[in-house]
Simulated assay, not measured.
Amino acid sequence: MYIEDIPEGNLRYGYTTGACATAATKAALIGLITGNIPDEVTIELPVKKNAVFKISHKRLENDYAEASVLKDGGDDPDVTTGLFIYSRVYMSPGKDIKILGGKGIGVVTREGLPVRPGNSAINPVPMRMIRGTAMKVLNDHGINNGLSILIYAPGGNEVARRTCNPKLGIIGGISILGTTGIVTPFSTSSWKASIVLALRVAIKNSIKDFVFTTGGRSDSEAKKILNGYPEESFIEIGDFAGFSVKRAMDVGANSVTIVGMPGKMSKLAMGCMDLHAHSSSVDFNFLSDIAKKIKMDKKLIEKIGNSNTVAEVMQIINYNNEFINYLKNLIIQRLTEYTNNRLKIDAIIIRSDNGV
Rank of each mutant, 00 (worst) to 15 (best):
M1C: 09
I3K: 08
E4S: 14
D5H: 12
I6M: 13
G9K: 04
R12F: 06
T16S: 13
T17L: 09
C20L: 06
T22M: 13
A24E: 06
I30Q: 00
I33H: 05
G35R: 10
P38L: 09
T42V: 15
I43K: 05
A51F: 12
V52Y: 09
I55K: 09
H57W: 00
H57S: 04
L60H: 04
N62K: 15
N62G: 11
D63M: 08
Y64Q: 11
Y64G: 05
E66N: 02
S68D: 05
V69D: 00
V69W: 00
K71V: 12
K71A: 10
G73F: 03
I85E: 06
Y86W: 14
S92D: 10
K95F: 12
L100H: 08
I105L: 03
V108T: 13
E111V: 11
V115S: 03
V115I: 09
N119T: 12
A121T: 02
N123D: 04
P124E: 01
M135A: 15
L138I: 12
H141S: 02
I143K: 10
L150Y: 11
I151D: 01
Y152I: 12
G155T: 06
G156I: 10
N157F: 06
R161H: 06
R162E: 08
T163D: 01
L168F: 05
G169I: 00
I170H: 02
I174Q: 02
S175G: 09
I176T: 07
I176G: 07
T180N: 06
G181R: 08
S187L: 03
S189F: 01
I195A: 03
L197K: 10
L197H: 01
A198C: 11
A202T: 03
I207A: 01
K208R: 10
K208H: 04
T213M: 02
T213Y: 03
R217M: 15
S218G: 14
S220E: 15
L226V: 06
E232F: 00
I237H: 03
G242R: 11
S244F: 03
S244T: 09
A248I: 04
N254I: 08
S255K: 07
M261Y: 12
P262T: 11
P262L: 06
S266N: 08
A269D: 05
A269Y: 00
F286Y: 15
I290F: 02
A291D: 08
M296E: 06
K299P: 00
I301G: 08
T309A: 08
Q315F: 09
I317C: 03
Y319T: 02
Y326P: 13
R334Q: 15
N340D: 13
K344Y: 11
I349G: 01
R351T: 07
G355E: 14
